[in-house]
Design a protein around this nucleic acid. Sequence first.
DNA 1: TCAGGGATTGACCCGTTGGACAATATACAT
DNA 2: ATGTATATTGTCCAACGGGTCAATCCCTGA
Lengths: 193, 193
Amino acid sequence: MPLRSIADIRRQELRRAAFQVLQQEGVAGTTLEKVAAQAGASKGIVLHYFGSKAEMFAQVMREANLVLRDRVVARLKRATGPRERLVAVIEGNFEPDLFTPPVCHAWLSLCAEVPRDAALARIQRVIHARMQSNLVHALRGLMPDGEAKATALVLSALIDGLWLRLGLNPTALTSERAVALTMEVLTARLARP
Amino acid sequence: MPLRSIADIRRQELRRAAFQVLQQEGVAGTTLEKVAAQAGASKGIVLHYFGSKAEMFAQVMREANLVLRDRVVARLKRATGPRERLVAVIEGNFEPDLFTPPVCHAWLSLCAEVPRDAALARIQRVIHARMQSNLVHALRGLMPDGEAKATALVLSALIDGLWLRLGLNPTALTSERAVALTMEVLTARLARP
DNA sequence: TCAGGGATTGACCCGTTGGACAATATACAT
DNA sequence: ATGTATATTGTCCAACGGGTCAATCCCTGA
């Protein structure tokens, strides 16, 4: 059904390569040539497919977001009740093979550019909106609406904060621990009026 | 008692200027010339006082950290009990004139470089260690040791996450709201066995 | 007044990098 | 086969930015 063109496949290869470079070099250190080298191609081709460095980063951010989203969606599919949905969202945001210092570094670099790049800002807004929506949807029924919104904000901030923590101090956190800590906050909140 | 030399004063001016530029331009966009222009000086002088761009960023990060630390310390001085100490730490980390999108952007840029800059990483470690220490110290007496460490981790991650949130979506958060949300998490946790 | 040392400047060097472009190769349709 | 579009490469360029340096400026202390 997708029937992806050669161009789309190539583009994805290049996005992957760019994400790889981003993990080690950051936005500033990521150069078209390094991306090309990582992909085993020439610099010209990178520009050919993306048009500009900024557009490349935008596509990389979209792709990375989709990867994360797919994980959450897959878990949500298997969930039945509201509580399971919450667990799905939380665990989906800490998948062990994604919740990794290099991946975090790449995200961090991209986020740091958001204030200065309108395209990245738009993507970021979508990401947050979806997370908020997922959480609020699951929280409704367990608590009043206003409370649900606040709880969703707390949870998403906590998740972001734990990711940040992983990036800044790789040894201090594992995926399971992050999930456990987030769940503790959630259950403490559910146990109160 | 300080008897700061002319050089120290000048250095501080330059740090301030660099922090200013950093807020709008990010690490990559911050150039020695822009910093010099912001300080009303020439590029050479910036290099004269810092030696290198990397060292400049390191000093800027230390300075920004000290500003934050002083706020927390000032509030801690006025606190008596453990609960007041916790409030002091939390409110001190969300001072309205610091909890600001531009300031957050500067921090975010610096944090994004941490994985690639050993000096910044050291400073970051100190920052986290102090926050952890402040929190654990205040939490002892209110809960067992292991629990206190976990709670401190949750609170610091939440604080970081709320900062990040402010930076990525400036309209979605105020200082008071951030304090309120953090306090809610804390009290919910204190209310449980 | 003068000497000396730090402060300050502006010119310069050199490597890097994003992007443009022309030339070539490749695949594909007719 | 042949021509057209796309893929791909290497070259080139202009801008930029960090860092060096020699030349001044200015303040201070003798």
